[in-house]
């Protein structure tokens, strides 16, 4: 489904990703872990097409298409969803209106019929149940005045409505207390399906207690240095990221250089 090969990316003249290779198959949940500055958020931003991220080498194919050639909206329509680390507040834009416009814009790009307000409302009601979100949030402006937990839940709720094929969760656990974290994880788990893949980017193992990954990768200095199953996350939790460096002195030297 998603194939990243030898990806190099640069931000503000600085090389951040330095040859990242990763394959995600349909229905798999991959966790990307790594210390601060490893390039975790850059990966999410490059995949979703944010401006200011320059890909200098490598390729990303999504269902056989060159993902990097698409505009952000084209990537969304293709089925890629980024749950933001810092969801943006948009005063004056109603949450429901925004979500319907987004869904219909995606459907239009895919050549599907747009949903009228009744059909959309029905869909929203179904998804609200899954996410256990009060519909009061829907009537407010997008993320405006939302608490940290509400913002993250709103991200997952958007994901539920937009039904992407690949969801990228960019440090969705950051800034959440344990209850909010559980709620968000619950929402994500409800959306797991054999047709939907996840890329869960996180600094801490904590989130992975609730969203159980099929694979765990360690990102350090712009590339994946270690891959394994969920037990890898536990090792990282126990020994810290230094452990990866210790196991790979060559890399450690390079990182120090």
């Amino acid at each position: 489904m998603l194939k990243i090969e030898n990806l190099h990316a640069r931000v503000e003249g600085k090389d951040i990703l330095k040859g990242l290779t990763l394959t995600v198959n349909r229905g798999e949940v991959h966790a990307i872990m790594g210390p601060n500055g490893a390039g975790k958020s850059t990966l999410g931003n490059v995949l979703s097409g944010r401006e200011g991220y320059e890909v200098t080498a490598g390729s990303v194919t999504f269902e056989g298409r060159d993902l990097l050639a698409l505009e952000p909206e084209g990537r969304a329509a293709a089925g890629v969803f980024l749950a933001f680390q810092y969801p943006v507040e948009i005063p004056g834009v109603n949450n429901t209106y925004f979500l319907r416009a987004a869904l219909n814009a995606q459907r239009k790009q895919r050549g599907e019929a747009e949903l009228d307000s009744m059909q959309f409302l029905k869909l929203v009601r179904e998804k609200l149940k899954i996410m256990q979100i009060s519909d009061e949030l829907l009537h407010r402006a997008v993320n405006e005045g939302f608490s940290g937990g509400e913002k993250k839940r709103n991200e997952i709720f958007q994901m539920a409505v937009l039904e992407p094929k690949l969801a990228i969760l960019d440090e969705t656990d950051s800034g959440l207390d344990i209850d909010a974290l559980k709620q968000v994880a619950q929402g994500v788990n409800a959306l797991r399906s054999p047709d939907r893949s996840f890329l869960v980017i996180t600094h801490y193992q904590r989130l992975l207690d609730y969203i159980e990954p099929d694979f765990v990768h360690v990102l350090a200095d712009g590339r994946i240095v270690e891959s394994g199953d969920k037990t890898l996350a536990l090792k990282l939790e126990e020994y810290g990221y230094a452990w990866v460096n210790d196991r790979d002195p060559a890399l450690a030297n390079e990182a120090r250089a």
């Binding site: 909206e73 507040e89 925004f98 790009q109």
Partner: peptide, 25 residues
């Protein structure tokens, strides 16, 4: 706001539509 613009586009709204939506807001 470029951040808001990207947020809307990342959800599927074409650039022009996203700009119009933010301007109306």
């Amino acid at each position: 706001d470029e951040r808001a613009l990207f947020y809307l586009r990342s959800r599927g709204l074409p650039n022009a539509e996203a700009r119009a939506l933010l301007t109306a807001a």
